[in-house]
């Protein structure tokens, strides 16, 4: 069965990392839609919560009562607020995207580049909302900027509802008035940067996913019990791209006291043959405990330029 996207409901999925503000972004869009008088749902899903770990949040808005709940498998609007998630298989940011999906990527690259590298289906919009947030708010928290881009792309939410929603949501988490005002300013900047109507947004069609029911058979307990036999599976999950700041050891000044080696909570620091600590940047999450603990202060922190 084919379905036109010009239906009464818009399904929005937000991908980000814990701490970036995607839960709040989904709520800002939810409140703005509520203020416009739509039926609304918003919800975050962050599992065992950790700062930096991939998370998702969802908003549904509709002119009619919503006959759905929970995870949005196939989004109409897909906000990817952290470009390093594009490569993360477990984050699975393109799940269920189709010709009618508008994907937004927070990056300084043009849309055509993102499309070429990832073969994204549907429309794609890019905007460096981190840069806007850093310039206007002074922090790389993306709740209001991401929400503003999404609100504009729905074509159903006005600037004034967005402004009111940013103010309500950020005030409710006790943000200072001055910071709320900066967020409103950043949101309105993003709202202006997205073109009025998106060309193909209302035209595509999507197919219902076909799947069949299978019968589960009894499995040998080696398979049928929730245990893990493989060794070293933690290494399969590279966490280096969680970093905002990279710790760098100045080996010329390092006294080889091993304090950083002892304190690293993720065992990402090893000692080389000459006795110097070496950081495994594939997995270092940038917690900066080594930076804080180094007694000689020979570890610096460098702002990381995200590349993919």
């Amino acid at each position: 069965m084919k379905q036109s996207t010009n239906e009464m409901i818009k399904r929005i999925r937000f991908h980000g990392r814990g701490g970036q503000g995607m839960k709040t972004a989904s709520r800002i869009v939810g409140t703005a839609s509520f203020l416009e008088g739509f039926f609304v749902q918003d919800s975050p899903l962050y599992g065992a919560e950790r700062r930096g770990a991939p998370m998702v949040a969802f908003t549904r808005l509709s002119k009619e009562p919503i006959l759905e709940r929970g995870i949005i498998v196939s989004p109409d609007i897909n906000m990817i607020a952290d470009e390093t998630l594009l490569n993360d298989q477990t984050a699975n940011v393109f799940q269920g995207t189709w010709e009618g999906t508008v994907t937004i990527v927070n990056t300084h690259y043009p849309a055509s580049h993102v499309r070429n590298v990832y073969g994204i289906v549907g429309e794609i919009v890019t905007l460096d909302i981190t840069e806007i947030a850093l310039n206007v708010i002074g922090e790389s928290v993306l709740s209001s900027t991401a929400a503003a881009v999404v609100c504009k792309l729905t074509g159903m939410i006005t600037e004034s509802s967005l402004e009111e929603a940013v103010t309500r949501e950020l005030s409710s988490i006790n943000l200072k008035k001055e910071l709320v005002e900066k967020n409103v300013q950043a949101a309105l900047t993003c709202f202006d940067r997205i073109p009025e109507t998106h060309p193909h947004y209302f035209e595509s069609i999507k197919e219902d996913k076909k799947d069949e029911i299978v019968r589960l058979e009894y499995a040998d307990p080696c398979l049928g019990s929730p245990s893990v036999y493989a060794k070293g599976t933690t290494k399969l999950k590279k966490t280096g791209n969680w970093r905002l700041f990279k710790p760098v050891i100045d080996h010329e000044k390092c006294s080889r006291c091993y304090t950083c080696f002892v304190y690293c909570p993720h065992s990402c620091i090893s000692i080389d043959e000459e006795g110097y600590p070496q950081i495994d940047y594939d997995n270092c999450k940038g917690c900066l405990i080594c930076f804080c603990e180094c007694p000689k202060k020979v570890i610096s922190k460098d702002r990381e330029v995200r590349t993919w």
Partner: peptide, 10 residues
């Protein structure tokens, strides 16, 4: 849990 507990609606 999640479907109602974390989900906001009017």
């Amino acid at each position: 849990g999640f479907y109602l507990s974390f989900t906001r609606e009017p």
